[in-house]
């Protein structure tokens, strides 16, 4: 499992995974269409905005926020936890263990390879969003856009690593799908996916600031919609916190995986 061997294998791995993503394109489209939650939330908040703005959010800001949420969710999505659960149960994880690269890297590569198709779906949505709100509700400072990219990558890594950690729990407890279910519900509530974090009461915000969920989706969305245009230092501090969490999650994932994999025994042949 040398670093050089892994780097050399990457282009091929990516190509194979991309071909797979293209082969299952119809299925992926259904998955994208099934991401209706931001639009459902947008309907509620639009009705709210009709009675006057809520915080800094008027109608246009809500449209921008929730369409950005849709786009960021597409770009940071990961399903590795379900995949690991499935492969542990079916025993097909064994074939992954035989390959000369780290299995977690394999899942990550499959995730990356699906990106171009997801970008292809999300970019039109982003353009529609821009046309609808006329650029008023997106970030204007170049600094915010500069920070957006690492924030997006950080959000994706956090989601992926959380998937690894919960997925690896399947090695200890047969199936960790239900753990993922609880994680997902908490993520929905506390990440800014359903409700912009800024709208929570101050007490709740203080807690959310220290939970990982907000850094998975809410933070990149806030950067994109101009929440930090005047306060870039706050954004830098949040970005630093996000990446500290990424490192902590990476360490935890590596630890849980190396512990759990010893317990794995494949069935069948």
């Amino acid at each position: 499992m040398s670093v050089r061997g892994t780097v050399k294998a990457l282009p091929t791995l990516l190509r194979v995974a991309f071909a797979e993503a293209v082969a299952y394109r119809a299925e992926m489209l259904v998955w994208v269409l099934a991401t209706t939650m931001p639009l459902v939330m947008l309907a509620l908040f639009s009705a709210v905005a009709e009675g006057g703005p809520l915080g800094r959010f008027g109608q246009a800001e809500f449209i921008a926020y929730f369409l950005a949420t849709f786009v960021v969710r597409q770009l940071t999505g990961s399903w590795a936890s379900w995949q690991i659960n499935f492969e542990v149960r079916e025993g097909t994880l064994a074939t992954r263990l035989l390959r000369p690269i780290h299995p977690l890297l394999g899942y990550a590569v499959e995730n990356i390879a699906a990106m171009p198709m997801r970008v292809a779906v999300s970019v039109p949505v982003a353009i529609v969003a821009l046309a609808l709100v006329g650029g008023r509700a997106v970030a204007h400072s170049a600094g915010a856009w500069l920070l957006f990219l690492p924030a997006l990558v950080g959000g994706w890594l956090l989601t992926l690593l959380a998937n690894f950690i919960v997925g690896a729990l399947a090695l200890f407890m047969e199936s960790s799908v239900k753990v993922m279910d609880i994680y997902l519900a908490a993520y929905f509530v506390a990440s800014g996916y359903l409700v912009p974090v800024e709208l929570f009461p101050p007490g709740a915000r203080a807690v959310i600031d220290w939970l990982p969920f907000r850094y998975q989706i809410g933070f990149p969305v806030e950067l994109m919609t101009g929440a930090y245009d005047g306060t870039l230092t706050t954004a830098v501090a949040l970005l630093a916190r996000q990446w500290v969490m990424v490192c902590a999650f990476a360490a935890a994932a590596a630890w849980v995986w190396s512990r759990g994999i010893r317990r794995f025994s494949a069935y069948g042949g």
């Binding site: 009705a47 709210v48 006057g52 609880i182 519900a185 509530v189 359903l194 409700v195 009461p201």
Partner: peptide, 20 residues
């Protein structure tokens, strides 16, 4: 926990106004 995902947004939006 999932019931909370339906109630929390309502709680937040109705904090500032009486009817939507």
């Amino acid at each position: 926990v999932w019931a909370a995902t339906a109630v929390v947004p309502l709680f937040v939006v109705f904090a500032g106004r009486s009817s939507i």
